[in-house]
Design a protein around this nucleic acid. Structure first.
Length: 426
RNA sequence: GGAGCAGUACUCAAGAGGCUGAAGAGGCGCCCCUGCUAAGGGUGUAGACCGGGAAUACUGGUGCGAGGGUUCAAAUCCCUCCUGCUCCGCCA
């Protein structure tokens, strides 16, 4: 969500931004919202004038009553009644107009950063940098689900019976490895100065609509029946929602938070859930990082944040690369975003394990998150990034630490979390 | 889930239909005094959001947990909801 003042004063740069995102069908929204905005302000001026008159008269009525001039008061009462009659329709229109304006403003994409590569869709995302040698062993790496299965670490038959497709039972040392990774990810971020946080796993609809677009909401979020509650798709939702309608003391910025949560996603849309294994699932667990900072610091933080994830995976000896989201693939709220992809020696390509984004002040504007400074309040920037999402991260780890005999090496940093175990084998 | 109480500005808190944008205190700003000291006196300070305006001038509107309602007029009366506290019930 961008500032409507920009549309008032400089609609061309808004149009240009829409074009850069290949959303030409949204161009007409700019003119539409300009027109509605003019109407709205004109109406507000008129209505404010009437309200002023009403307030003045009401005060007078009070005075007249005290002076015992009942009759004069009655005359004024009638006058105010007339004003109120006029206001009924006007106020209804005010609500309609501002609702429409808000709807359109929600649809107009946030300004992308100048550095974002232009492109239509994910096919045009750009590899930025590789970290670590993408090793291809001279033996074949089986499909991740088969590796885990052979180590008695996965039971999808049972989860199918209890919960349907898209769920899993992780078992034994594999389950422990999954938890070890998450614990390590938590400590990794704590050691980098972040504050650990366990948020609510359900949030209300007003928070949901503040942190994501409408389509995302439909495709991702599970709603609790009979309640105004949704299961979170990522802890970013509750972590950003935490600050809804808050004015944070300027000297507390930047807020550096790392949160753990299970994540629930419907995965409706392009890919669906039909994939075998545990790559695309309805439920996973994630260690997330969230930063709230001043707008001018956002880009620095963005660059620090994706680097944390790279460092994290490198500390597990998993080769990764960063893939920058092109303009057309960038969600409407985002200023800039990149995926962290891990190397898959089986597929001999990289696959997504995390995503780092700066939303600028778009989320803050939607949710009314401000900083309290000396010169007044101002909107903050919000950023989020995955440290580790598992089972996806688990898959990366397993493939890259797979031995020809079917066993898996436990990376050194994880051994303290595994009771010293060095290798997982049959 | 049941019962009771409460939600006012940075904080505490008064207010119980109009004279309340909101007493008082703390805090904070400034000034003064001072050997009796984690001190005294004086004085000032009210936010936020949306409009008009070149404007940091001036000005209108909104606003006392949220949303409705009654009224010429609502922090104040009524309804619904949310949140917190206390008690009961239930339960990891």
């Amino acid at each position: 969500m961008i500032d409507i003042n920009v549309i008032r004063n400089n609609p061309d740069i808004v149009r240009e931004n829409i074009k850069k995102k290949f959303q030409d069908t949204k161009l007409e929204l700019v003119d539409e919202v300009i027109e509605l905005d003019i109407k709205n302000r004109k109406l507000k001026m008129e209505a404010d004038g009437l309200r002023q008159k009403r307030n003045e008269n009401s005060d007078k009525i009070g005075l007249l009553y005290r002076e015992g001039k009942q009759e004069d008061a009655e005359v004024l009462k009638e006058e105010v009644k007339e004003i109120n009659d006029k206001l009924i329709d006007m106020e209804k229109e005010e609500v309609e107009l501002s609702t429409k304006i808000k709807e359109i403003m929600y649809k107009i994409p946030n300004f992308i950063d100048d550095s974002v590569p232009l492109g239509k869709d994910d096919a045009e995302n750009v590899e930025i940098e590789k970290f670590g040698e993408p090793v291809v062993p001279d033996y074949e790496i089986p499909y991740h689900a088969d590796i885990i299965n052979n180590l008695s670490g996965l039971d999808k038959d049972s989860s199918g019976r209890t919960s349907g497709s898209g769920f899993y039972y992780l078992m034994g040392n594999i389950a422990r490895l999954h938890s070890a990774m998450l614990s390590y990810a938590r400590d990794f971020m704590i050691n980098n100065g972040f504050t650990y946080c366990i948020p609510p796993f359900m949030i209300r609809s007003d928070v949901v609509s503040g942190v994501m677009s409408f389509e995302e909401m439909n495709n991702m979020m599970y709603k609790i029946e009979g309640e105004d509650l949704f299961l979170i798709g990522t802890s970013e939702h509750s972590m950003i929602g935490k600050f809804k309608d808050q004015a944070i003391n300027e000297n507390e910025l930047p807020l550096m938070l790392t949160s753990y949560s299970p994540c629930f996603r419907k995965e409706v849309g392009a890919h669906g859930i039909e994939e075998r294994g545990i790559y695309r699932v309805h439920q996973f667990e994630k260690q997330e990082m969230v930063v709230i900072c001043k707008m001018e610091d956002a880009m620095d933080w963005y660059n620090k944040m994706w680097k944390f994830t790279v460092d994290f995976f490198r500390s597990l000896d998993v080769p990764v690369r960063t893939l920058e989201c092109c303009s057309g693939d960038l969600a409407d709220l985002k200023v800039k975003s990149c995926d962290i992809e891990a190397w898959s020696p089986r597929q001999q390509k990289y696959f997504e394990v995390g995503s780092c984004s700066t939303l600028g002040d778009a989320q803050a504007r939607r949710l009314n998150i401000k900083a309290k400074g000396e010169g007044g309040n101002y909107l903050v920037a919000t950023l989020n990034n995955t440290v580790l999402a598992s089972p996806r991260g688990l898959i990366a780890l397993i493939e890259n630490n797979y031995n020809e005999d079917g066993s898996i090496n436990v990376p050194e940093v994880l051994r303290p979390y595994m009771g010293g175990l060095e290798i997982i084998k049959q």
